[in-house]
């Protein structure tokens, strides 16, 4: 569960980014966050990862109260989230297998479990035959699939995808969205931050629109929800 309660965020240089945002995302939801550049989408993601701190209001992600949480707990919050970025953020010096395994090592998973589960996730994203390749040897779409496998490797309740289709072609975008829907069907909450309206309209999921740091609409596959 993710809950923004009257969240305001102003950057240190005085730039306002979010203004009194109220948003509730229940477990198992699939939500698109949309808006033009500079609307506040990225700030919203940064707040969820506790890269930035709320200026006022309350922000809860699962059991973590981010507005009060001390810095030392940030790694544990991030372990409970699966995050996918537009620029993939894979380790260039690690193979595909090692990239996925690394996320599991961070949480102290046993070697035997890693050896069993990494092939399962690579199979899920259809990259079994490329396990020993380095990210630089893969296409954009393949790299993003590795990022997906890494994001779900620790069985997080929530998966956040920040412009996941920004660096791949249309066909691959659709495949990645299918993958996210499959992940959602596994019972995970999925949050997709995007400005690709064509994709949003095609998949008809709950869509939250932000503009100038304010939620201007919250529609569920066409129906407007109470904010």
């Amino acid at each position: 569960m993710i809950e923004f309660k009257d969240v305001t965020m102003v950057y240190d240089n005085g730039t306002p980014a979010l203004n009194g945002v109220n948003l509730l995302i229940e477990d198992g939801d699939f939500v698109f966050i949309v808006g033009r550049s500079g609307a506040g989408k990225t700030t919203l993601t940064k707040l969820l990862l506790r890269e930035e701190r709320v200026s006022s209001g309350k922000l809860t992600v699962d059991k973590f109260k981010l507005d009060k949480m001390p810095r030392r707990k940030v790694p544990y919050l991030r372990r409970s989230l699966g995050v996918v970025f537009q620029d993939f953020r894979l380790f260039p010096n690690m193979t595909v297998y090692e990239n996925v395994a690394f996320a599991m090592r961070v949480v102290g998973e046993k070697n035997s479990v890693i050896k069993k589960r990494v092939p399962y996730f690579l199979n899920l994203v259809e990259l079994t035959d490329k396990a020993d390749r380095f990210p630089g040897e893969l296409s954009g779409g393949e790299q993003q699939r590795v990022a997906f496998a890494r994001a779900i490797a620790n069985n997080p309740k929530i998966v956040i995808a920040d412009e996941p289709t920004g660096n791949v072609d249309r066909k691959m975008s659709l495949e990645l969205m299918d993958l996210l829907i499959r992940i959602n069907k596994l019972g995970k909450t999925v949050l997709v931050v995007t400005h690709d309206m064509e994709l949003v309209e095609r998949f008809k999921k709950r869509t939250v629109t932000i503009d100038d740091g304010i939620i201007i609409s919250d529609k569920n596959g066409g129906a407007v929800l109470e904010a």
Partner: peptide, 12 residues
Amino acid sequence: KDIAIMRYIGAT
């Protein structure tokens, strides 16, 4: 960049 990625995936 590697260090930043490690932090994003929850490394202490």
